[in-house]
């Protein structure tokens, strides 16, 4: 082989010495091409032998998320000890359930101007709205701890009726609400049978899962609930200080701890799940792109100032990047944005 190369080189030198100018240019081009190919091969070989994995070069998902934390914008005042908050998908209306004052559901516009209020019962003593949600049709769902049911209102606040307990049961205590594309999910704290209830969009009971207790899959005052596009159900098992994740059939997938008193939840369109830790005075954010979920970051601390919490209880996220947090003891709704 070396002889062939050597003979080839001699032939090229001979041709270079005796050839025409055209032949010489051709030889020059071939030589440059050879050097170029050798250089590329050398660089490629160097890259293949020294390269680092992509994960070592790029920042991690939490690090990226940390760099894009939401920031405090302003607060909506004029509510008394708010415990529930929801926002319409287009971000134009904010719904707030207050546990103090008149104990009404206040509806605000995006700028924080009050539009109207709704009451779940005639007298103050008879009503205690807690969690509120709104679906794509503008229907407003409000759970009431005193009335032991979930009320429905149309987008203008006119009563549409209320949901019913599972068949054969006369007493229930629904609390958290999640509105999936096909199902309505409720947390229920009926004494002795804390659980999750699943209904169709027109209010027909489908199934219940979970029992009261502290073991995996059991509940002790479940509060917030969300459902992701894959049908996974996320429940804050409040008094057990954990978040439990179930598949669509109600089988426990996994659970996450580390909360003081997890309460309300929200999910945005960027695959982020928000959990309000009422006693931890913070909002914990998870990424849904990995399962089990990856902790991205948390925000907030105890205080009376802007962006500080005093027993927050619920959160809502719209499609414009805004977050609304019911800051209970500070008597306000905090508005944050990315």
């Amino acid at each position: 082989m070396w002889r062939r190369i050597r003979d080839g080189a001699k032939a090229l030198l001979h041709l270079w010495a005796t050839g025409t100018p055209h032949q010489r240019r051709l030889i020059l081009l071939l030589a440059l091409l050879g050097v170029g190919l050798a250089g590329v091969a050398g660089l490629w070989g160097y890259y293949l032998t020294t390269r680092k994995p992509l994960s070592a070069v790029l920042p991690s998902a939490p690090a990226v998320a940390e760099a894009f934390k939401p920031r405090y914008l302003f607060s909506i005042y004029g509510v008394d000890r708010p415990v529930g908050v929801a926002v319409s998908p287009d971000g134009e209306r904010i719904y707030v359930a207050e546990s103090g004052g008149e104990r009404k559901v206040h509806v605000f516009d995006r700028k924080g101007e009050r539009l109207f209020t709704m009451a779940t019962a005639e007298t103050l003593a008879e009503r205690t709205p807690v969690y509120v949600e709104v679906d794509g049709q503008g229907r407003i769902f409000v759970s009431d701890r005193r009335q032991h049911t979930v009320f429905l209102f149309d987008p203008e606040g006119n009563p549409l009726g209320q949901m019913a307990p599972p068949p054969g049961e006369t007493f229930w205590a629904p609390l958290g609400i999640a509105l999936g594309p096909e199902r309505i999910y409720l947390t229920d704290i009926t004494r002795g049978m804390h659980r999750v209830l699943v209904y169709t969009q027109d209010g027909q009971f489908v199934q219940a899962f979970g029992t009261e207790g502290k073991d995996p899959g059991q509940f002790w005052y479940p509060n917030g609930i969300e459902v992701d596009p894959e049908g996974r159900i996320y429940v804050t098992d409040s008094n057990n200080g954990r978040l439990q994740v179930f598949d669509a059939s109600g089988e426990l997938l996994y659970r996450l701890g580390g909360f003081n008193l997890p309460r309300g939840t929200a999910m945005d369109d960027q695959q982020r799940l928000y959990v309000v830790d009422a006693v931890g005075q913070r909002v914990v954010v998870y990424g849904l792109f990995a399962q089990p979920m990856e902790l991205l970051f948390d925000f907030g601390d105890l205080g009376l100032g802007d962006g500080q919490f005093n027993y927050p209880n619920d959160i809502a996220a719209d499609t414009t990047g805004r977050l609304y947090i019911a800051d209970r003891e500070n008597n306000r709704i905090q508005v944050w944005a990315y």
């Binding site: 701890r145 509060n223 008094n239």
Partner: peptide, 24 residues
């Protein structure tokens, strides 16, 4: 306690709305 107001802490479960206890 992690918080300055003991009653606010207790009211988180035992207050109006009582989403952590039945004794409001």
């Amino acid at each position: 306690l992690v918080e300055s107001s003991q009653s606010a802490l207790c009211y988180s479960c035992h207050g109006t709305g009582a989403s952590g206890a039945d004794t409001n």
